[in-house]
């Protein structure tokens, strides 16, 4: 019961963990490489959601000073995630470039088929 209460209270954290696991599962089980990269993106954004929700405080304003608001949410997680987002985009771009090249060499983007082709070549 205590656990259920804790989860209900931290529903944002719980949702981000669920999404994280969905992305993780997609990455582990699907053999299609593009699907793997999609899973990787979902996993990363889930972690980002988790970090951003750490910084949120109920009833406080966005961290832009100068208006009427006196109390602000924690700005540090947002600043970190801004970095994380860009990192994610560069990783995705590089992975996709490699996938295009894999397709040109092997004629497939399926990890299992590639493994088969390589074992036949040997």
């Amino acid at each position: 019961m205590r656990i259920v209460n804790g989860i209900a209270q931290n529903y944002f954290y719980f949702a981000s963990m669920v999404i994280f696991l969905i992305g993780f599962h997609t990455m582990l089980t699907h053999s299609n490489l593009i699907k793997k990269i999609l899973g990787m993106n979902i996993m990363e954004t889930a972690v980002f959601l988790f970090v951003v929700s750490i910084g949120y405080v109920r009833g406080r304003a966005a961290p832009v000073v100068g208006g009427e608001a006196q109390q602000f949410v924690n700005p540090l997680p947002s600043a970190l995630i801004l970095t994380g987002l860009v990192v994610g985009v560069s990783l995705t771009a590089f992975a996709l470039a490699l996938i295009i090249k894999v397709y040109q060499y092997y004629g497939t983007v399926d990890a299992d088929e590639i493994m088969q082709i390589r074992s036949e070549e040997r």
Partner: peptide, 23 residues
């Protein structure tokens, strides 16, 4: 909604825009 407009903007441009286009 979590009062982080900066990353909301960046995600809308980077995640929804550029990542989707690259995919």
């Amino acid at each position: 909604q979590l009062n982080a407009p900066d990353i909301a903007m960046t995600e809308a441009a980077m995640g929804a825009g550029i990542t989707t286009l690259l995919f």
